[in-house]
Structure formats: C-alpha cells, structure tokens
Write a protein that binds this DNA or RNA. Structure first.
Lengths: 157, 157
DNA sequence: GCAGGCTAAGTGCTCACGCAATCATCTTGG
DNA sequence: CCAAGATGATTGCGTGAGCACTTAGCCTGC
C-alpha cells in the first residue's frame, strides 16, 4: 500500500544522509569548541558571520538578517546575541536611520576569541569529515563539502 | 594577521553551506510535519528508522543504537521514545537475552501515521531542495542529496 | 557465588529554541 | 498631525536537548 515513489524515497535517503552528516559534524565540533573555548557551535557561527559582515568598519546586518543567516528564529537570535553581548564579545548599536533595526559589532575580545577558536573549529571539522568519509552513504557529501571552490558569496534577496 | 589557512577556510565554507542547507530543509520540513501530522522532524525520523529496522523480525535496534542513528544523546532518545510510546506510536519491549537492552516496535498506529506523513515529508523536502538549489553555495550539495544512491537513469560521472 | 566493574536505560537539572503576544518604531492615508 | 497598519526586536511560556548522576542488569576474577 501507498507504494512510495522510488524517486521520493531516494530523496529521503539523501536527506537522511545529509542530516546524519550534519549531526555528526555538529556534535563533534560542539564538543571541541565547548571544551576549549566555552563556545557553542551557534555562538561560534554567529561570531563568524558577524565578523565577516563588518570587514569594513560598520556592521550592517540587522538581527533579522542574522537570524536568517544562522537559521534561527528571531527570538533565539535576540537571546543568542544577548548572551554573547553579556560576555563582552559583541556590542549592539542602533541603526541611526531606522531605530527599529539593531546592528551588532564583534568586540576586540570577540574577535580574539573567534580567532582562537577557529583552529579548533577547523581541526574538529576535518576530523569529523574524515570520520564521515569512511561511510559510503556520507562520502559523496563529504567530497562536496571538501571541494566547495565557489568563491561566490551572494545571497539573493 | 592570523593568516587563516586557505584550505581550512574552504572547508569551513563547505561546512557552513552544509549547515545552512540542513537548517533550511529541517525548518521547512518541521513546519510541514508539525502542521499536518503533529510530528517533529526528530519524531518522524525516529519512526522512519524504527520502521526500517524491523522489516525482517530479528534486526531490532537498542536505544543506544537508535540514539546514534538519529544523533541524539541517550537521554534525549529515552524521552523521544517515551513521548511516542505515550502517543501509542511505539512499543518498548525488553531484549530477552539481555534485559538491560530495550527494543522498540512501531505500532500499527505508528506505521499508519508514518505512511501518512511520508508524502508530506517528501514534498516539503523537494520544495526545500528546490529553493536551496537557487543558491550557488548550496546547489552542489543539493545535487548530491538528490543523487545519493543514484537510481538507474542519469547517473553523473 | 559473590564483589567489583562495566554497560544500557532512565532521571534531575538547566538551558536553548520556537511560537505567540508585546513593545517600539517607521510608513501611509486621511 | 493623527490614526491605522506594517516591520523589527524583545519577552512570556512551554518544550526538547545535553550533562551528570542514578538504577538495573550483565560479566569477570577470585
């Protein structure tokens, strides 16, 4: 009954593999970052995103855009930013032209911590990928992750 | 300053893309499953895994193995299984040879709900993948997901 | 066969997340 | 200018997740 489409089933397998791979990598990195720097993956990711956005001098991502970038709800983003702000890693500031909008800058301490944590992150990532590559289901995904040459970095509205 | 290894940076980009893709897909499926069947992605995933494991009769998974399969802690798995058991979708039973081990069966109701939810899941998955394919960063990953265990026609080189 | 160690599952606690409601601010129409 | 609506951020509340600990059952050495 309900003879499930083979095509759909294949998709589901692919999604399952993606999910598995993501979960494993995240768990691995989480442990490493947490143990060595007291950062969660989300926190690291947030710092990373925010540090990129303000490569000039003024960070120009609003909370909502940040939320989208890290795939978090607005409320979760608010709290995540608040946590890091309380730890002195970020600083909020009001958008001068629209006081509803709120920008965030990574502080010196935040940048420092981020740069300290980056090797940990990358090493853990490598390990996790290496581990995952042993699994036939995950190997193709691992390959792609390892070979994202695309320097393109634009997200369509 | 802190000239981050380009190789490592590339890896990080790939991971970032993977993470983004996963987050988007999960969020999309979550909404669909939750709205139409009152299931979370985890719950659906658990049902799916457990329904596969007992296709014969002997190959049942213990809690610990289940936890590994869905990348959850043991405690989270305990509670997840408990929730679904309380809803009558699963049934625990003791392993006869090792009474520490606990197996789980998907009940009729569980199978029924799973089969009902499967099209929802697959449709949402397709949508999410289609959406993601528009993003240059994510497209290669999407391709792999779509062609894991590639069915007969159109296998890429 | 019993003590000690080990492994599997479950429990207490805390915290992060999402949803819905709320507050603050901008924008538009009268 | 004011009212009504829209949008961004935050807060209240309930739920799911991980860590550390406990409990139950196996297994080895003596």
């Amino acid at each position: 009954m309900t003879a499930t489409d083979p095509a759909l089933t294949a998709l589901a397998q692919g999604w399952c593999a993606l999910s598995l791979l993501h979960g494993r990598i995240e768990a691995h990195i989480e442990r490493a970052l947490q143990a060595r720097h007291g950062l969660s993956v989300r926190e690291y990711s947030l710092l990373d995103v925010l540090s990129r956005q303000h490569d000039g001098d003024g960070g120009h991502l609003q909370m909502k855009q940040v939320a989208d970038a890290v795939v978090l709800s607005q409320s979760a983003t608010t709290r995540l930013v608040t946590r890091l702000e309380d730890r002195g890693l970020l600083a909020r500031y009001l958008c001068p032209t629209d006081r509803r909008g709120i920008y965030t800058n990574v502080t010196e301490a935040g940048l420092k911590l981020l740069e300290e944590a980056r090797p940990t992150n990358d090493t853990a990532l490598r390990q996790a990928l290496g581990e995952a590559a042993k699994n036939a289901e995950l190997a193709p995904l691992v390959r792609v992750v390892e070979s994202v040459n695309a320097p393109a970095h634009g997200s369509p509205a």
